[in-house]
């Protein structure tokens, strides 16, 4: 079943003249780690805002077409209700942590939807365990590091038990190792079936590509390509889109241009290693 379905969706913000999203027709289905990429200003953020109703409810403007979240039209169902189906984690954890300690932070979502105390308590315990933040339980948001803050933000969304979680550049402010840890955590959440689908916007493709099952490539407010990760990165559209192509991909792309290599471009270091091994 389609979790999110865009039907000829177009959107123009009230304050701007041009449409930021044009003729969007995509389906998001379950069981996938989806990478959404595109250059700055291509419309990625607007696209995720349309997925939980922030567009058109929080950000007003002109709309054509529909977005359905599990069959519910985002025009009619408030974001706060849709948040039980779609969770959104933003780039800067500082702006999404609203309580003075971690435990209360995680409780906030369940409190808002009226979860009874016993269930809330067990949800909190579970989310703390998955995100590995037991030691931070009583800490205030400004006492912990950026990577830890992002973990708390993730736990606090998980506590709402949404089917889809969307991450808008969750690691851009983090050091490389914390970034990888966060991305691996997302993969783990997906594999352990805590959520059905994960959508991530990332600029650092070198660390996120290896985790991606599917790629949605956005450009100038349109979907340029959507498909299985290997297929997309082997396409001209991806390679010319202006996103940061990882070095491994780009090395083999050049070898391909020189007619030395043919076949599928490696998506990760592991695949690159296998490629070299296969030639040896």
């Amino acid at each position: 079943m389609n979790l999110i379905e865009f039907q000829n969706f177009c959107f123009r913000y009230d304050h701007s003249e041009d449409f930021v999203l044009k003729d969007i027709n995509i389906n998001i289905d379950s069981g996938k780690f989806i990478l959404m990429c595109g250059i700055t200003g291509s419309g990625k953020t607007s696209l995720v805002r349309a997925m939980n109703g922030l567009i058109p409810q929080f950000y007003h403007g002109e709309i054509k077409g529909n977005v359905l979240v599990k069959g519910k039209n985002t025009k009619n169902v408030p974001t706060s209700t849709l948040s039980r189906d779609v969770g959104l984690v933003f780039q800067n954890p500082e702006n999404q942590l609203i309580a003075m300690n971690v435990e209360r932070e995680i409780a906030f979502g369940p409190e808002n939807i009226g979860v009874p105390w016993d269930e809330m308590d067990s949800r909190i315990k579970e989310c703390i365990k998955i995100t590995d933040i037991e030691h931070l339980r009583k800490k205030a948001p400004f006492e912990i590091s950026g990577g830890e803050q992002q973990r708390v933000a993730i736990a606090s969304i998980l506590a709402l038990q949404p089917e889809i979680i969307i991450f808008d550049e969750p690691t851009s402010l983090l050091d490389p190792k914390s970034a990888i840890q966060i991305l691996n955590l997302l993969k783990k959440i997906l594999l352990e079936k805590k959520v059905s689908t994960i959508i991530v916007i990332e600029h650092r493709l070198d660390i996120v590509l290896p985790l991606a099952d599917e790629i949605i490539l956005v450009d100038k407010g349109r979907i340029l390509e959507q498909g299985e990760a290997h297929n997309v990165i082997n396409g001209e559209k991806f390679l010319n889109s202006g996103v940061n192509i990882p070095k491994c991909v780009s090395v083999f792309q050049q070898l391909m241009n020189q007619n030395i290599f043919s076949g599928k471009l490696p998506i990760s270091i592991e695949e690159t290693k296998n490629l070299i091994n296969s030639i040896k």
Binding site: N52, S80, A107, E111, N112
Partner: peptide, 25 residues
């Protein structure tokens, strides 16, 4: 800008979705 981001994130966390809010503490 921050206020906007906070509001967005509150909405995304079911803020105000029901009158029967419960409390952990």
């Amino acid at each position: 800008k921050r206020a906007f981001h906070i509001a967005e994130s509150l909405d995304s966390r079911a803020f105000g979705s029901t009158k029967n809010r419960t409390y952990y503490y």
